[in-house]
Design a protein around this nucleic acid. Structure first.
Lengths: 208, 208, 208, 208
DNA sequence: GATGAATGAGCCTTCATTCAT
DNA sequence: TATGAATGAAGGCTCATTCAT
C-alpha cells in the first residue's frame, strides 16, 4: 500500500521528505503546492519524488494516511478517558494536543488544511479514515463523561457542543496569533492560565 | 488608490467584472484563480482586466477593499445596536448576516476565503482594513450591551467571547454542511429553530 | 471544428506552423515528436501552439484532417479517370502524385507515417476519413477501367492488385533511394524512362 | 565488437534479455522503447543492462547485429537454391520465411521496424550489414534461376523485380491484416491457397 | 558481478502579463 | 478604450544513465 521504495529509506531522510511535503501542502493547498519546492526543501533530486510516489496525488494521499496514523497513535490514543469531567477532559486534551503540535507542527497544519480545503477528490478508503479519525476524536472527547455534572435545566448534548465550539474558537484565535512565530520561543504559561480561567467560567455556567 | 479607469465604467459593467472576479477567487483561492475565467465570465477582453487593474494581485486587493466596504455598509451598519441583550443581539446579527449573504453570496464567500487562506502577503493598509473590519464588527457586537444580565459569578468579558466562539462554531458547522448545496433550495426554518434553542441554553447558563 | 484562433492567422504563418508540425510528426512519430521543436522551427512562442491547438493530440488530428483534405483536393481529384487503360492510368497517377509531392513533401510524408504507425487512437470520424481517403484513391484507380484489355486466361482482379503492388514497390524503392536528397536537385527524366519501361513489361505480360 | 560481459552470460539469460529488448524495440520504436520495461521483462537489475551494453543505442545496435546473424543463419541460408523456377523459388522462400517467423517472431518484427523507422543514425558498419543482408537475400532469390522460363518479349531483370515487388506487396497486406492478432490462432491454409493463385497468375503472365 | 536509488534534462501544458492593432 | 495574439517561466512528470553499495 505504501511505496516500498520510500519505506526503505533511512528514517531521517523519510522525515525530511515528509516534512518538506507536509509543509508545502499545508501552506499552499494541493494544487498550488509545488513538487519542485518539495524536492528542493527535502534536498533530493527532481526525479526521486516520483520514484518514491509516482505522482503528486499519491504523495498527497500518502501524507494523509501518514498524518492520520501519527495523530491517532501520538495524540488521540494518549487522551486519558478516565476523567469523567467534560471540561477537565478538554483541559487534558489541550495539553496532549499542544505536546503533539510541538513535536509535529507540520502534521497538525497539514491535516487541518485537508479538512478545510477539500480540493482533491479522495479515494473512499481515505475519506473513511478521515471520518473515522474524527469519530475517534469525538469518542475520546465524550466517552465516559459524567452528564450529571451539568445543570438540570439545559440540554446536555447542546451544552457539550457549545462548550467544544467555545474551546475550538479560543484555540483558533491563539493559533492565528502565533502564526509565523516560532512556537518554541513563546512563553506559554500565561496562556495556560488564561485557558484555565475560561474553563472555570464554563464550569461555573454549565455545571450544577 | 482605486484605479480610475475602472471606476469610470458604467456600474453594471463594474458589477459584472467584480462578481466574476469575486467568485473565481472565492472558489479557487488566489493562485489557482484564473484571469482567463474572470474575463470570460465578465465578458470583457483579456487586455482590459490588466488595463483596469495592472496585475492579478492589484485586482485581488481591490476586491478586498471593495468587499470590506460593502460589508461595512450593507451588513455591519445595519446591525441594530439598541438591543442591549447580548444573546438577542447575536440573534439579530445572524439574521442580518443571512440577508446580506443572500444578496451578496460572492462577497461573503470571497471575504471568508481571504481570512482563511492568507495565501497572499497583503500590504499593511489592507491588513489594517481587515483588522478594522473585525474591530467594527466587534463594536457592533458589544456596543451598548447590558452586562448586568450576566451572572455575577463570572467574568463578563470572558463570557462574551465564549458565547461568540460558540455561535461561530455552530455557524461554521452549518456552512460546512451547506457547502455545495444551493442555499436557496434549503428550508432554513428548522435551522433557525435549532439556533434559538442553542441561544436559550446559553441564556440559561450565562445569564442570571 | 478547426480552431478559429489558428484559422485567423495569415496564411504564410499557418503554412510555417503546419509544415514544421507535419515534418516533426512525419520524422519522429506522434509520441516522439517534440512540440518544442515544432515551435522552434515554426518561429513562434512556446505558448502559442497550445493557444491555437489546446493539445499535442488536437494538433495531430488537425494535421490529419488537413492532410486528407489537401490530398483529396490537390492530388486525387486531379486524376483523369477517362483513361480506361489501367497501366496508362497508373502512369498518369504517378505523374500527378509526383507533382503533388513536389509541392507538399511534408504532407505526403506525414500521411504515410500516420498509416504506418497507428500510435494514436484516433476518433472515429478521423478513422473514417482515412478509410474514405483510401477508398477514394482506389476508386480513382479502378473507376472506368476497361478489363477487356487484359488476357483472358488470368483473373483480372488479381492482375490489378499484382500490378498495383509492383508499382508501389518500385516507387517505394525510389523513395528510399531519394531519402535525404533534395528531390529538386535530381534529374528525374531517366527515372521516368525506366518507369515507362517497367510499365511496358507489365503491358506485354498482362495484356492481350 | 560485441560486449564480452554479455557474451559470457549463460545462454538462457542472454536469450531472455535479447527477447525482452527485441520485443520492446519492435513494439515501440527506438526512442519510445523503455529500458525500464526491458530490464523488468528480462528479470535483471537496471544497472546490468548498462553494464552489458553501455547505452541504449549500443544495445539497439547489438540487436541489429544479432538479428542480421540469426536471419542469415536460420532463414536465408535455408533457402533451397536448387529450384531454378523463379516463382517456385518465391513460394519456397515464403514457406521458409513463415517458419522462421513462427520460431523468431520478435526478431522478424524487430528487423522490420528497423528498416521502416530509421529513427536512429546507424554506424556505417551496420548500414553495410543491413545492405549486405538484403544483397544476400537477393542472391538467394536470384541465384541459379533459369531465365529461359520467361517470355522472350520482356526484359527478364525487370520482370524479376516486378514479380518480387508484387509478392512483397501481397505479403505486406497480409502482415497488416494480421497485425495485433495472434498468428498462431489463424488458419493459414486459405491464405496459402490464395498465394498460390497469385503465383499462378504471375506464371501465366510472365512465363512462356 | 549485480542492484536499484539518484540525477537532471527534457517532455507537454498552463497562465499572468504585454503589446500591436 | 478595447481586443486577443504572443511570450516564457513554471508546473508535474519520464527516462536514459550513473554510482554507491
Amino acid at each position: 500500500m505504501t511505496p516500498p521504495t520510500f519505506n526503505n529509506l533511512d528514517e531521517t531522510k523519510q522525515k525530511r521528505i515528509l516534512n518538506a511535503a507536509l509543509q508545502e501542502f499545508a501552506e499552499n493547498g494541493y494544487e498550488q503546492a509545488s513538487t519542485n519546492q518539495i524536492v528542493k526543501h527535502a534536498g533530493i533530486g527532481k526525479g526521486m519524488l516520483f520514484y518514491y510516489f509516482k505522482s503528486k496525488k499519491e504523495l498527497y494521499q500518502y501524507l494523509i494516511d501518514y498524518a492520520i496514523n501519527i495523530m491517532t497513535k501520538e495524540f488521540l490514543s494518549l487522551i486519558d478517558v478516565s476523567e469523567p469531567d467534560f471540561i477537565d477532559r478538554l483541559r487534558q486534551i489541550a495539553s496532549v494536543k499542544l505536546k503533539f503540535f510541538n513535536e509535529n507542527p507540520s502534521v497538525t497544519n497539514f491535516i487541518g488544511s485537508v479538512y478545510l480545503a477539500d480540493e482533491v477528490k479522495l479515494p473512499v478508503h481515505l475519506q473513511k479514515q478521515l471520518t473515522d479519525l474524527q469519530s475517534y476524536g469525538y469518542s475520546m472527547l465524550y466517552e465516559n463523561i459524567d452528564p450529571t455534572l451539568f445543570r438540570d435545566d439545559i440540554n446536555v448534548d447542546k451544552a457539550f457542543r457549545l462548550i467544544r465550539w467555545s474551546i475550538e474558537g479560543y484555540q483558533n484565535e491563539l493559533t492565528n496569533e502565533f502564526k509565523g512565530k516560532q512556537i518554541a520561543s513563546v512563553d506559554l504559561d500565561p496562556y495556560w492560565e488564561e485557558f484555565y480561567e475560561y474553563l472555570d467560567v464554563l464550569k461555573t455556567s454549565f455545571y450544577k
